[in-house]
């Protein structure tokens, strides 16, 4: 009696729970990401920083290249952060408004990071997936090229490029983009090799699905997770590289600026009692980097196939 009822109840329960849409891996991942407090908060802060860099200029009293002759040369006395003067973050040594300059630096740094990472993602994914899927000799040659490029010291090449071809944002992109896809291509290739031997790829091939469809329908969607994680971790790396270059005085050109350049100026004048010149850009820099790393971490945990 009880047994019979049990099976009936089970059937009912099945029918109840099994109707409707299933949880796709993406939905699952999103839920797990939301449960990660550090990652969710980081995402929120990062979005606020991005929004600030777009909306902020409407509240600015001074433009980023305009010089406040009052504050020039006497930043320590006149150029401190204040609402009345319109210099919300104070001024730099030349009397330029730090609020506007930080916004400008944020835009440039984030743009360099995101664009550089996108170049790396597109080039690296295509290169790695091709190499892994084709396999054999072609794979060997393509990966040896990556090995050779990787053995060249990254910073050295970047600095050399900027010195030889002159300082420009364009050159910085080329230099960073040229080298940052290498890791990406290796990771993607490894993952593709792994996927290629999965039985569901074999099942598709046995059925007669074309190579192109196999790559677009079966391989790329399964790569997206790892690519997304790596890209979020790549952005701060590139921002750091750019800041380092700017800190050396080789990055963006005046009057444009970036976090690295601002930090450099701020650090140079720290002995003149103008600590805000260092602290504001530094705060943005550090907070953003932390946010990126936390988000990357959260994404990795959320997409980790082992936790499935």
């Amino acid at each position: 009696m009880i047994v019979a009822n049990k099976s009936k109840i089970k059937k009912m329960a099945e029918n109840l729970s099994e109707s409707g849409a299933g949880r796709s891996l993406w939905k699952d991942a999103r839920m797990r990401f939301m449960q990660n407090k550090a990652a969710t908060i980081s995402l929120f802060i990062l979005i606020s920083i991005v929004l600030f860099s777009f909306i902020g200029p409407y509240f600015a009293v001074w433009s980023y290249e305009q010089i406040d002759w009052n504050a020039m040369g006497s930043a320590a006395r006149v150029g401190m952060p204040s609402i009345e003067s319109g210099h919300f973050f104070g001024t730099d040594d030349l009397g330029r408004d730090l609020y506007s300059r930080v916004i400008q630096g944020t835009q440039i740094s984030l743009m360099v990071g995101v664009l550089g990472a996108s170049v790396a993602v597109v080039v690296g994914t295509l290169y790695g997936a091709t190499s892994g899927y084709l396999g054999g000799k072609i794979d060997q040659i393509m990966m040896r090229i990556v090995d050779i490029l990787m053995s060249i010291p990254y910073m050295f090449v970047l600095i050399l490029l900027l010195v030889v071809f002159g300082r420009s944002i364009g050159m910085l992109f080329i230099g960073i983009g040229l080298l940052s896809w290498l890791d990406m291509s290796r990771i993607v290739r490894g993952q593709t090799l792994n996927l290629k031997n999965k039985e569901f790829i074999e099942a598709a091939r046995v059925t007669g699905v074309t190579d192109f469809k196999i790559i677009t329908r079966h391989i790329v969607p399964n790569l997206l997770g790892i690519v997304a994680v790596y890209a979020t971790l790549l952005v701060p790396g590139i921002i750091l590289a750019e800041s380092f270059i700017s800190f050396l005085g080789l990055g963006v050109q005046e009057p444009s600026t970036s976090w690295g350049a601002l930090i450099k100026e701020g650090a140079g004048t720290i002995s003149y009692d103008t600590e805000w010149q260092l602290l504001f850009p530094l705060a943005f820099f550090v907070v953003s980097l932390f946010c990126f790393y936390f988000i990357g971490d959260g994404l990795r945990d959320a997409l980790d196939p082992k936790e499935r």
Binding site: W26, K198, F200, A203, A204, H218, N222
Partner: peptide, 13 residues
């Protein structure tokens, strides 16, 4: 064809 590892033979996405 039917495969050995039932889960691995289905595309998770």
């Amino acid at each position: 064809m039917i495969f050995q590892d039932p889960l691995a033979s289905l595309n998770p996405r």
